[in-house]
Design a protein around this nucleic acid. Sequence first.
DNA 1: GCCGTTTTCGGCCCGACTGTTTTCAGTCG
Length: 577
Amino acid sequence: MTNAEVARVFEEIADLLEIQGADAFRVNAYRRVARTVAELTEDVRAVAARGALAELPGVGKASAQKIVELLETGSLALRRELTAEVPESLLELLRIPSIGPKKAALLWRELGVRSVADLEAALAAGRLAGLKGFGAKSIAQIARGLAFRAESAGRTRLGEAWALAEELRAALGALPGVERVECAGSLRRGCETVGDLDLLCVARDGPPVVEAFTRLPRVRMVLASGATKGSVRMAVAASTIQVDLRVIPADVFGAAWQYFTGSKEHNVRLRELAVRRGWSLSEYGLTEGDRTIAARNEEDIYAALGLPWIPPELREDRGELEPGAVPDDLLTERDLRGELHMHTRASDGHHTVEELAAAARARGYAYICVTEHSQSSAIAGGLPVAALRAHAARVRAAAAQIRDVTVWIGTEVDILADGRLDYPDEVLAELDFVIASIHSGLGHDSAANTRRTLAAIANPYVNCIGHPTGRLINEREAMPLDLEAVAQAAARTGTALEINANFYRLDLKDQHARRARELGATLCINTDTHSLDQLDQMRFGVLTARRAGLRVGDVLNTRPAEEVRAFVERKRRGARA
DNA sequence: GCCGTTTTCGGCCCGACTGTTTTCAGTCG
């Protein structure tokens, strides 16, 4: 059973308990366990094997026993007992907007509704009318929710939400009386996917701003529209996303920004610190009785609680409140000196090396490396050996003419099914930098994938493993991989692990990158650019790295060109020694 | 169910909005 599967069972138990009307804190305790297991970088089976489950945050004796039971038997007695009382199919009702545990329970007990199909039938037959708490508007809301169910499913990729947020900031900022617009929520924290978009603005008069917000062109459905808050679904990519806008007085903006940035768990910790001092923290400020201690700026709130300002990417209740947990040299985009994974027209990219170099110069980079696909990646225009050599000669000739930016020639060589590389070593030895990636055979098991990756890492000419788990967010699962073994081998051999900044990939993901760093591995952040506009996706790689707590020195492409050369040479020399 | 610088019991965040209510419950974040 995977970590995700274990987490899901605990989530379902929480939902079932909630429908039953169980104590809300007990319900939350199960959700906490689900979150902890879902975010574990280590296999939960390994934690269970060494008897350390109860040491995990939010996991006590009872939950530890349940996890063991689940891993050993594949199911849980508690879950069976709950589903004997509450139909499992009720869980799908909870995903319909405006239906929560109470309404789901009422629909089931009063009307025998057990599933979405039942609900649609009951709605069509007019059986919802007259049910306690279900007026005409509630019923209409449910009907809209049902109609919207398909396209509102799932989370939006960070890059897509980012573009929408930029557009909305501009549109809202142009409204009369609006002084400031900011994003909060998981977008500001740089999460790989965003459930909904949270926008805050400062304006002299709230209602007209909320009104204008609900009339923006992308709005598909208005969920709420009040004096200080509006909530809508907007078209984004091929789907829709919920967008919430709140109008905040300027003098408490920092408190609101902090509050709505979250995460919820981070805020709970902060509130505990406040309560311990006899204070209270809300979106209106840090207060003692009627006296406001801090509210205008986030910095003041953190400072009053005895903390440094915590970057949003770290606000996940992963130890960021501990003394010294926030490094003063947390990576920023400005720290990057180059990019080591780029494609040109020679394989499946859209631009010439000269165009890439010009774009890199505009970004202030000191170096780039051109890395075409290798011969087995025929579909991506991979280069046979002779073509690679001719391409290398062209790139070196171009590099000699390019000022201000050092241009290296490398490759993104395929790791074949048996772990061999797609070019012989003597060809790789002619190149400046080698990325090795798995593009095929992603369906193998963890042992096979790990073996292939370790074989690539063992090659003296491989300097970086590209998109190590091969996932495509919302499209393809990460391939199973023993990240611990891979990161340890990478650390030992001087091989970098990539954080692929493309917002479809973000691979390694934040928690994996954090663990890889802990194990001593060097990371490398690349956009894997195929077209010039993709260079801007570096910001998503940097957000991911910041979520991982990476410092400047942890990332290969923050180093000067000569140090990158030395990184390559060290591994090659080590192999000869 | 979890947890502990108010520690083994008694807390565990709280406000906006909506709809259906005569003062509040449910949902959501």
